[in-house]
Design a protein around this nucleic acid. Structure first.
Lengths: 211, 211
DNA sequence: GTCTATAGTAGGATAGAC
DNA sequence: GTCTATCCTACTATAGAC
C-alpha cells in the first residue's frame, strides 16, 4: 500500500487537508491523526514533511498572507495612481479576499485560535508596512502627506487598526466600533500629516450601510 | 499521607509555586508535575483547584495587572499634578513594577503562550485606557492637549505601543526599537495635539543609556 | 530520498475510590 | 478534598520496504 508522490504535491495535500480541518474543527480540536486519516498517510510521513502541527498552521497562514501582499504590490506598481488612490485600493484589497478564504478568517476570529490569529496579524503588519511606507513616501513627494517617519507611522497605524479593530481580540459593540473607525480616520490624518477629512472615506468602507 | 488544608491556603500555595516555576523555567517548560512536586500534592488536587495550567497563569497575570491599575489610579487622583506629570508617572509606574514581578514580565515577553500574553495586553489596554483618557481630558482643559477623541486616541496609542513595542510579539533589533520609540513619542504628540517635543522624554524612559 | 508501521515517551487532563 | 489510575494527543524513535 505504498504510494510515492511528488513531494511538493504531498506537502500541498497535507496543507489542504489541514486547512479544511482547522477551519471546520478549529486548530486545537483538529488532531494530527485527523490530518493523517484525511490524506491517508502515516504519522512518520507527516513528521517527515513538517516538524510540528504548529508548523502546518504557519504554512497555511503564510499562503493566505502572501496573497494579500501580492495584491498590494500590484497596486503600488501602478504608475497611474496617486498616493491616496493607492492606499484606498490596498485597503480595499485586504478587506475583500477570495470567498474561499473567508472561512479561514472567521476561524482566526474564534477564541480557540489565538496563536494562529496573532501570527497572521503580525505577519500582515510586517509584509504590508514596507509597501505602504513606499506609498506614504510617494504622498510626501506629491505634497499630500507630511511626516518625518513614514515607515514607523505606517507600522503604528497598521498595528493599531489590525489589533484594536479586530473583533476576535477586542469585542466591541457595533456603535463603539463605528466610533473607533471614525477616530482612526482622524488619527491617520494627523499621523501622516494629511489634509483633514481626506481619510473620512475609510468609515464608509468599514460601514457601507452608514451615512 | 492525606493532608487536608484550608482551601484558600492551598490555592495560594499552588499559585505561588506556579509563579516561581513559570518565571524560572518558563510557562511551557514548567509542567504540571513540577507544580505538584513543589507543593507535594497529587494531580487530582491540582485540577480540583484549577481547571487547567492556563487558568493558573491567568490568575497570576491578573494579580499583576490589578497592581498596575491601582497604581495608575493613585496617580490620577492626585490633585496637585498636571496632565503631563500624570502621564509621565503612569508610564513610569507601569515600567517599574515591584522587583519580584520583573521575572513575570520577562516571561510574558518570551513565553510561547500567545493566548495568555494577548490576554494580559488586552486587559492592560481595557483597564488603563479609561484612566489615561481622564488625564487627556484634564490636559485638554489645561490647554496642553487638543483632540476631539480623547478615549479613542488613547486606545490607539496604548494598543500600538503595547503590541508593536512588545518584544514577545515583534522581535526588533535594538536600533529599530529605538527608532520606533522615538517615532512613537512624535506620533503621540500629533495624535493628542500636544506641543512638539513634549513627549520626547519617553525615549529616555525606554532607553536610559542613550543620549 | 520517500514512505509505512509500530512502539513508546511526556505532559495535560479526567474519573472515581476513599 | 485528596488520591491513584488512566486517558488522550503531540511528538519521537526505529526498523525496514521501495
Amino acid at each position: 500500500m505504498r504510494l510515492i508522490k511528488n513531494p511538493e504535491e504531498r506537502r500541498n495535500e497535507i496543507l489542504d487537508a489541514a486547512e479544511i480541518l482547522f477551519v471546520t474543527k478549529g486548530y486545537t480540536k483538529a488532531t494530527v491523526m485527523d490530518i493523517l486519516q484525511a490524506c491517508s498517510i502515516a504519522k512518520g510521513t507527516f513528521y517527515y514533511y513538517f516538524q510540528s502541527k504548529e508548523e502546518v498552521m504557519n504554512a497555511i497562514v503564510m499562503r493566505f498572507i502572501l496573497n494579500g501582499e501580492a495584491s498590494a504590490r500590484r497596486v503600488v506598481s501602478d504608475p497611474n495612481l496617486n498616493a491616496h488612490d493607492k492606499i484606498f485600493r490596498i485597503i480595499m484589497a485586504q478587506n475583500q479576499p477570495d470567498d474561499n478564504k473567508l472561512g479561514l478568517i472567521e476561524q482566526l476570529h474564534h477564541v480557540q485560535n489565538v496563536e494562529m490569529h496573532q501570527k497572521s496579524l503580525v505577519e500582515t503588519v510586517l509584509r504590508l508596512s514596507p509597501i505602504l511606507a513606499e506609498v506614504v513616501e510617494q504622498g510626501i513627494e506629491e505634497g499630500v502627506f507630511h511626516t518625518p517617519n513614514p515607515k514607523e507611522s505606517i507600522e503604528f497605524l497598521l498595528v493599531s487598526s489590525q489589533f484594536l479593530l479586530d473583533q476576535g481580540i477586542f469585542q466591541w459593540e457595533e456603535d463603539q466600533l463605528l466610533k473607533k473607525v471614525e477616530a482612526f480616520a482622524h488619527i491617520t490624518e494627523r499621523v501622516l500629516g494629511a489634509e483633514q477629512g481626506s481619510f473620512a472615506y475609510v468609515t464608509r468602507l468599514y460601514f457601507p450601510h452608514q451615512a
